[in-house]
């Protein structure tokens, strides 16, 4: 069905060789850009996971997911405002605030996402396939509207409360915040992978994704499983929102639409429905964007990202790590 795989390898090989050449000739800039891409990609990966899980289980492109992510950041900045945090340095109160706010926001977002699923998607489970897509778009507008009404159209400040230490290693500049993003992202992705593979609920999710009717016959509560998927996706999106805020310190209400689109692209890129695939897809897109901004020119970045996407899908129609499952 697909064109030979070597087309895909030629594509990847060329990119690797070009980048390796840069790495050798201008190592400092290369590794600096690599760090930028890595941090950006880690956040995309967190958002992409929510897309890939939901798509895997009910075949819905959940356009509202990006806005759940942004709303997480908005709630995060509001909650942090209740603590006596100090911006620009790292204090014990900052740490306590973070430890409290992280799980609280994640849980709130989980609750919101379950409600969204209940209101906008569940009643349409047997409707034409595109009907929930439209409610997802509607929900996306709705959430953007809530944030717009709440904090207005301008950018909103997110407190800068991470440690500000930074280092130059061989001319490459990086700080605690860069490490923080990558580490927290990696931990969350690993936790999710363990959860999906090891727990009973995770097994139920995989079964539901594979064949909903068969899963139901095996006694799996479909509604509960799907709700759980939305809940976990939103946990990660909420965490992603706070991490975004801590890292960039500026958020605005339309952030999620675009980031969501990129994250969904990342999910497809990695092979939709595939957890490690989504994480890798996020990283690849983050790195591509950073390298393209730096080496090719920022106005070509969109063309490069989506060009690569189309290229990969043409040569490998199920994404980087996608399984070649026959269509039902």
């Amino acid at each position: 069905m697909s064109l030979p795989d070597y087309g895909f390898y030629i594509l990847c090989g060329t990119a690797v060789i070009l980048l390796a050449a840069q790495a050798v000739t201008h190592p400092t800039q290369f590794f600096q850009v690599f760090i930028f891409g890595l941090t950006q990609g880690a956040i995309y990966a967190l958002v992409a996971l929510g897309y890939t899980m939901v798509y895997g289980i009910i075949e819905l492109i959940n356009f509202a997911h990006g806005d759940v992510f942004t709303l997480g950041a908005y709630i995060g900045t509001t909650l942090l405002g209740f603590f006596a945090i100090t911006e620009g340095t790292f204090t014990a109160i900052n740490l306590i605030a973070l430890i409290i706010v992280f799980p609280v926001v994640m849980l709130i977002m989980g609750g919101i996402n379950i409600t969204i699923e209940r209101v906008a998607y569940r009643p349409l489970r047997n409707a034409p396939r595109l009907a929930p897509l439209i409610t997802a778009i509607g929900m996306s507008f709705f959430l953007e509207g809530v944030m717009f009404l709440w904090r207005g159209p301008a950018t909103v400040h997110f407190p800068d409360i991470l440690p500000t230490q930074s280092w130059y290693v061989a001319g490459v500049f990086f700080g605690v915040r860069d490490i923080f993003v990558v580490v927290v992202g990696a931990v969350l992705v690993s936790l999710l992978a363990v959860f999906i593979n090891q727990t009973k609920l995770g097994k139920a999710m995989r079964a539901t994704a594979q064949d909903r009717d068969a899963a139901q016959l095996m006694g799996i509560d479909i509604n509960r499983t799907i709700a759980a998927t939305f809940f976990i996706g939103a946990l990660l999106a909420g965490a992603g929102g706070i991490i975004w805020g801590l890292y960039y310190n500026t958020i605005y209400y339309q952030l999620g639409f675009r980031s969501g689109l990129i994250a969904f692209t990342a999910a497809v890129f990695g092979g939709i429905g595939n957890i490690p695939g989504a994480a890798i897809g996020g990283l690849v897109i983050g790195l591509t964007a950073a390298f393209s901004d730096s080496y090719i020119g920022s106005k070509w970045t969109q063309v490069v990202i989506f060009g690569i996407l189309i290229g990969v899908l043409v040569f490998r129609p199920t994404g980087l790590l996608g399984m070649r499952v026959p269509e039902k």
Partner: peptide, 21 residues
């Protein structure tokens, strides 16, 4: 001379680094 679009860009660090370097 670089350019960006609001809806596409939220990370300018690579562009800025390019200027700086």
């Amino acid at each position: 001379h670089s350019e960006y679009k609001k809806e596409q860009t939220s990370d300018w660090k690579s562009i800025l680094l390019n200027f700086k370097s």
